[in-house]
Nucleic acid binder design. Sequence first.
DNA 1: GTAAGTACACTGGTCTGACCAGTAGCCTGC
DNA 2: GCAGGCTACTGGTCAGACCAGTGTACTTAC
Lengths: 247, 247
Amino acid sequence: MRFEPVAPVRAYERVVEQIEQAVVSGALKPGERLPSERELMTQFGVGRSTIREALRVLQAAEMIRSRPGDPRGPEVLAASPAALHRSMHRLARAEHVGLAELLQFRMILDGSAHLLAAELRTEDDLTGLDEALESMREGVSRGYAEFSRADVAFHEVIARISRNPLLVVSEEVVRGVVLELIEDKLEHASNRTSLMRAWLAHHAEVLDAIRAADGSGAARLAKQALYDNYAEYVPAGQRPLLAPLLR
Amino acid sequence: MRFEPVAPVRAYERVVEQIEQAVVSGALKPGERLPSERELMTQFGVGRSTIREALRVLQAAEMIRSRPGDPRGPEVLAASPAALHRSMHRLARAEHVGLAELLQFRMILDGSAHLLAAELRTEDDLTGLDEALESMREGVSRGYAEFSRADVAFHEVIARISRNPLLVVSEEVVRGVVLELIEDKLEHASNRTSLMRAWLAHHAEVLDAIRAADGSGAARLAKQALYDNYAEYVPAGQRPLLAPLLR
DNA sequence: GTAAGTACACTGGTCTGACCAGTAGCCTGC
DNA sequence: GCAGGCTACTGGTCAGACCAGTGTACTTAC
């Protein structure tokens, strides 16, 4: 006979548990309201501080939101990737992940997203991509900030077409971290217009592949584009790590 | 001139911010201790309840841990994927991410890990994989739990060889979520021994491909193995989503 | 009748002070 | 030198208080 070690269960944890259960089970739907803190306090039979600590935890998990003064009580939120985003961001910054690893990861995610997009795209999706490409083309003359925004939009369309939110969120997070790491270097980039034109040409190629439903082609182009754009910031010794992904 | 809407910043949020900053900047390393709540309260100039709510948030993010009675104060934890796991799990249970998407993601990650492993492996890595495969072989006769552990160990070696912590962590998280989603179905799986043998044969094949430095072959085998093992749990209508990844 | 204005009851955010069970480390007594 | 107890302090919880802010319902003015 073996016994399991027991961990003391805090009062606020049991409160979190019950409310979380109510939310995931669907008993509490997004938009609905929790009772007020004082009401919860009598329902659970604990002090207000305990209730508040529980609500803080749920709020940190992006499950509820409370606004002072609102007599309707804390609001139950729809599930969102925000919490996932935060924890992945934290992990990426902590786990001594270098630019090479990040770029590797991004090539994998972006490549896969393009592959799926090429295989799953509908005609509507194609017109969406056409429009996104068009606003990128307009963005070239409107300066880097505008172009960058259009670029992000294009990638969001791709991500949406690939129909996998996990892929979308991860890619977005990694993209953010990569940009944070090299933003100071980007500041000094000269000749931005020609960079934008090259980037635009890449996207047009990718779009052609997607239109042709050529998944592996689109994936290869996407990965190559990332490599061409960012490899220069990766220490030369680590660039071989990226090569296997280009084949 | 445009003005940005301002959101009121809670006191506890500023406390969270400062402590988090200290941790990610490395000023506070894992294992080190935070001052006691009463001490923090004077340092930040806020009440204890505010401090406690801040600590709860940090604790929910798996950044610190506090034990009652410990005079050394709350402990700073090493970055761990636990928070990522939780938020991904939560998101997965909310309808947006189904088993199909999770499996898609896992095939992408696992496939890429195998590809990188095959291209980057050294001779030492190969012996490590040989050993891992051997303990899987032994595990077959020792029951499913033991076999499963050996299986995880094999995948960890692969992940390590691929030299990308992001890949490792993400894969581990997704793997856990997938298993949690179908664990009840796994309970009823009959004929486990033959399943284990098939799984073992798959791994032997993968190892051959890695030994031959055949990256795309290893990736394809890995994805195919996942598909063969889990596709039956995916709703039939969504299985086409997985097919593009097998080519 | 409607629109504007106001009063009120209640909300969440914060602070203070208190009590408890539990821990680490010191400090005895041997 | 060591076992055992003592103590100061910890985090967990509660109670009660105050404040600024909100939504609602009621009143008022037209």
